[in-house]
Design a protein around this nucleic acid. Sequence first.
DNA 1: CCATATATGTCAACATGACTGACGTAAAAA
DNA 2: TTTTTACGTCAGTCATGTTGACATATATGG
Lengths: 166, 166
Amino acid sequence: MTDVKTGINPLFLREEELRQGLELLFFAYRDFTSEPDAILAEYGFGRAHHRVIYFVGRHPDITVSDLLEILRITKQSLSRVLGQLVREKFITQRPGLKDRRQRLLELTEKGVELERQLTERQRGCMARAYREAGGEAVEGFRKVLLGLVEEADRGRFPSRGPIRRG
Amino acid sequence: MTDVKTGINPLFLREEELRQGLELLFFAYRDFTSEPDAILAEYGFGRAHHRVIYFVGRHPDITVSDLLEILRITKQSLSRVLGQLVREKFITQRPGLKDRRQRLLELTEKGVELERQLTERQRGCMARAYREAGGEAVEGFRKVLLGLVEEADRGRFPSRGPIRRG
DNA sequence: CCATATATGTCAACATGACTGACGTAAAAA
DNA sequence: TTTTTACGTCAGTCATGTTGACATATATGG
C-alpha cells in the first residue's frame, strides 16, 4: 500500500483525523449559516425560509413534493414557511400544466432579489475558500462531501471529471 | 492564467460550482446528522445533547464558558441540555482547581459509552467517504472547509502539512 | 478590606422550526 | 366510479434557540 512505499501511515483513517472531519463540518456549517441568518432576521424570516427560497430559486417550477424530498421535513412544516413566503409575495404558485393538482413554485422578482442577497454572501465565502485552497483541493472537497451525501441525492451533483474538462 | 495555457476556464469560481458547494454542505450535513438523531431520540435527547456530549468528550475538563464559545449559544440554552445530562449522569461537574468558580465538565462512563455509540456511526461514515475519495481529496476537503471556518477557530485544526508528514 | 469583575446558575417569557395525527379537497389514475 | 395522489389545514407538542433580569460564589485589583 501507499504507506509501505512512501513511509506514510494511513493517517486519513485515524481517529484524530476523522474527528477533525466531523468538527470541520460542524464549525463550517455553524459559521456558514450565521451570515444569512442576520439578513433573514430583518425580514422576520428564519433559516427555513432561506432553504425554501434557495431551492425554489435553484429549481424553478419545482413542485411541493419535490421540495419536501429535498428538505426532508413534513408538509406541515413546509406549509408554514412556504405560506408566509407566498403571502408576502416572495414566491408564486401556479397549477401544473400536466397535473393540475401540483403547485409549481417560482420566485418573484422580490424573491430573486432576496435569494441573491442571501446567497451572494455565502457564495462569496465559498469562492474565497475555493480560491485560497486551489482547484485540486476543491475537487477533493467535492469528492468527500459527495461521499457523505445519501446515494439517492448524489445525482444532483453531476461530476465534472477530474479537475479539468474540455 | 491557467485557462490560457491549458484551455480550462476558471470553473471553480463559476456560479454553478459555488452553488454546488453550498448544496453539498447542506445535503452532507442533513444526512450526516440524521443517523445520530435516531439514537438520541431513544434517550429522549436531541442534537444539542449530542454536541455537548461530543465536545465534553473531546475536551475533558472543559469549562462552561469554553463550551459556550464553541457552540455559540446562550448559557440559558446550554444550561437546559447540560443540566439534563448532568442529572442523568452522562456528565459530571467539579469545581476548577485554580478557579473554583469554574465547573469542569467530564463524561462519565455512561457518557463515554453514549458518545462512542453516537460518534462511531459518524466516524464510520466519514471513514468510508475518506477511503472512497482518497488521501489527496481528504486534504482538499480539509483545506476548503477550514477556509469556511471563522479565523478564530482555525487553530482548533492543527495542520498536518501537505498530504504526508514524517 | 472593599469594590468590581467574572463564572456560573436560574426564572420567566417567547420565537422558530421541527414533529404527529386527523381531516379536507381537487384532480389523476385505475 | 372508486381509489390514489398532491396538496392544504387545524391542533397540539417538543426541542432548541433567544432576551432580560436576577442570584451566588469566587477572583482580582486598588
